[in-house]
Design a protein around this nucleic acid. Structure first.
Lengths: 338, 338
DNA sequence: CTGGAATGAGCAAACGGTTGCACCAAAGGA
DNA sequence: TCCTTTGGTGCAACCGTTTGCTCATTCCAG
């Protein structure tokens, strides 16, 4: 049998409450007693039972991370682990543990959210998703359960969230392509279910307008963000008979595919067509040519997300906070026209 | 205040124990009573408190996943999320929750393992690491805490683990390169800290011997598995004045870098040099040229790992089990010599 | 008519901590 | 010398469930 607080109390000739207070470093226990208790705890190899403690304190120090969305691909994307790492890092420092769950469909997601909120195990939830109009979000607000969304949601003023400024991100990238001399700039991978792609598109359009370039809807190709291949989207574009001078893909992985298609068609990147992506996946710098991208700082996204959640859990759920994580345009060969 | 089992009991005019038994679907409670209780539970929106339940049952239904190793890169590798997804999928079906933690250094790791095992929150641990001689493994064995390692450890007969047969994987890949006509085959990215790379190397050597090709140690380039770039390793090899006809990299990401270096040197893949990797990352099929690789079935690795852990937790910790997950050689253009 | 299953439900003690309050001894002030 | 502080500790209730026993019916066989 495990050694409990009572065993320690007996061995130290004090009451369990004294041991408990000693552990909590209460000022009401004398130095001498504390010292004795700690020595005995050490000797008997005592470790508090967090479950019992949680029950008594009505606080578990556990948060939940929910990977939403029905697509398994979200899980696979390189920035996901980075976000996780960011969360884990800050959580560890704050003595919080992380419960992770993923939903493969909406029913499952509903069930998980229900479980996470009602069973009393998690004190807050971090939502990994930029899904538009997610019913779980509404539910969480209704029951006033602390949660933070990583990725800007559609009802941005009614929830806590953390994200990059993707409009600006899209704007910067577009401006960059304009600056290197592109006039016909295609935009690949707009997925109306992901606000991040819509935001980047918005930035793209703004940049074009600011530079007096007319927006050509034919240059905007919809796709399923991470599911579709850049190869196919690029093909779709060029099948229209369009050969752009610049291509912006909503994700580096799409950009890789696009470049492949361009190469097959005998077009050189960047000389014939400049290509850029987003998210700066690990491979982007090793690619041929190295891909211009935007580092979204996924680690900070996770770290800041947790911090926001922490304040949300403490506060009385009164105001809604947001955090914008800076991103960085990383210019590489794929957009360096001669 | 939350509604508790006592509230339900009062409302239903029964005792708390009856409610508890009704929830557990005990045969000792009559159908009529159960029905009444369930109705009231529904009405009052009751959800059992898992913490209290865990305390009473002495069982939490939570397992821990520990991402070991001091390198953050392990977290970033594309197969990591896949493993996680596999674990999550089976865990969900078995009503288990997943606590995830990552250690950034050995001290932290020791602390986390200690916490995970002593605090009574997790009933078993899944170790994600192939680290050689990890002190945590010895500790876990000593205290007889249920755990399973994903990745073959060095003391393979004294622990539970799940992995691919990486010797065979290395063998197959090497044989494949030999079959397409390579004679001088380089092997990139051997990291003595990762058994997976040593195993693949072993298979490589066996295949060479079986085909009467002499092993040339100059062709074997050490590297830090995922940290080093294939570009650098390939350079290191060719700086020796060696131009191999085939290259096997311990990871696809390394292979990508190697190909880049080869291209810069004016060598064509696959015609001049055939190149292959392992792990079949999502990008491998879109790469130019599409990369020959081995699908390690990371999802199954995770799923099976959890299953093993489950049996380990139930059993009396008597025998040690292992599971070998089948892998699949995926031949693509990068090794298709004309 | 009675004794003993069989059935359905409740009592109360865990599970391992935390915490408000009471208590007591020693110290300090009047 | 007595009365109040003050510092240190213990008592016991509580957190929300589970579960080993006990107990009260009902029913049926002998």
């Amino acid at each position: 049998m495990r050694v409990t607080i009572n065993d320690i109390a007996k061995a130290a000739n004090v009451s369990p409450s004294t041991v408990s207070r000693a552990i909590a470093d209460s000022p009401r226990i004398s130095k001498a007693t504390k010292k004795k208790i700690f020595r005995i705890m050490e000797e008997m190899n005592y470790y508090p039972n967090v479950i019992a403690r949680s029950l008594a304190r009505k606080s578990t120090n556990i948060i939940g991370i929910l990977v939403m969305g029905t697509t398994e691909k979200a899980f696979q994307h390189p920035f996901f682990p980075e976000i996780l790492r960011g969360v884990a890092s800050v959580a560890y420092k704050n003595n919080y543990k992380i419960l992770i769950s993923s939903a493969t469909n909406m029913d499952e997601q509903r069930e998980i959210v229900n479980d996470l909120t009602q069973s009393g195990i998690t004190e807050g939830i971090l939502l990994l998703s930029s899904g538009v109009k997610d019913p779980s979000i509404r539910y969480l607000r209704e029951i006033q359960f602390p949660f933070v969304i990583v990725g800007r949601p559609d009802n941005e003023n009614e929830v806590n969230w953390v994200d990059n400024d993707n409009v600006s991100v899209g704007y910067q990238m577009t401006r960059h392509l304009i600056e290197v001399g592109c006039t016909e700039i295609a935009f690949l991978g707009v997925d109306s279910k992901f606000i991040v792609t819509l935001d980047r598109l918005k930035g793209y359009k703004m940049a074009l307008q600011d530079n007096n370039i007319e927006i050509n809807e034919d240059l905007i190709i919809e796709g399923k963000f991470v599911d579709d291949t850049g190869y196919d989207l690029m093909k779709k574009l060029m099948d229209k008979g369009i050969v752009p001078s610049g291509v912006i893909a909503c994700d580096d992985l799409l950009a890789f595919g696009a470049i492949k298609y361009l190469n097959e068609k005998g077009l050189k990147v960047p000389d014939d067509v400049a290509v850029a992506g987003f998210n700066n996946v690990p491979l982007s710098s090793y690619f041929t040519p190295p891909l211009t991208s935007v580092d979204i700082n996924a680690f900070s996204l996770g770290a800041k997300g947790f911090e926001l959640l922490l304040t949300c859990m403490k506060s009385e759920y009164k105001s809604f906070n947001r955090a914008i994580i800076p991103s960085e345009l990383i210019i590489r060969e794929s957009t360096m026209k001669k």
